[in-house]
Amino acid sequence: MFEARLGQATILKKILDAIKDLLNEATFDCSDSGIQLQAMDNSHVSLVSLTLRSDGFDKFRCDRNLSMGMNLGSMAKILKCANNEDNVTMKAQDNADTVTIMFESANQEKVSDYEMKLMNLDQEHLGIPETDFSCVVRMPAMEFARICRDLAQFSESVVICCTKEGVKFSASGDVGTANIKLAQTGSVDKEEEAVIIEMQEPVTLTFACRYLNAFTKATPLSTQVQLSMCADVPLVVEYAIKDLGHIRYYLAPKIED
């Protein structure tokens, strides 16, 4: 028996919005420690890794490890039927081929349930090596989304250059060149407005705007985003999900032909 309950359906809606542009379907691996999802996008350029800890749920029970392959378009249709403040409960029997998603209004006067067919997805799991990153940048998630959106107008690629002075995002194309520099913030009133750079070594890497913009669909989940970079390895873009877990996106850099 698997049962996981969250106080607000809005969190699940935001999580789905954060992955459904990259993934058509994905396997939710459930164990007593929580729910994990790891999947590459169709072009195998990026990888999504979602962790939801069992202690972040209002109720969590998982008697046996369970892998639930879900069509994310179908799941989106179901979540559209929930009000943001509804409780949401996911339930499945051991070895079941369906999952039940139930919504309850705050006053419990409206209860709806949706049974969704599960899929057998043959997804490979990748081992992600530990990396000592040369640069780790923490910045407001909205600012990162804005920069990715703005620079995508000028080029398919963005160059991220991180030094101890700050982080620079650049794009160059037919129109010309765009550069956006962010310095580390001095003192800020609010922690969520801070730009913090931890640099061991300067690093310059090139990434596809299209994927960065897809990652920023996670912006509603978190006030801050963390970018971890190291020469010749994938960028890690991480959004914390408060009291529940995190979503990490890995993006292969563009390299010299």
Partner: peptide
């Protein structure tokens, strides 16, 4: 010219 690599080149199959 820079080209897009695959994420597979960086991670190993489990």
């Amino acid at each position: 010219k820079k080209v897009q690599g695959s994420i597979r080149n960086y991670f190993t199959s489990k």
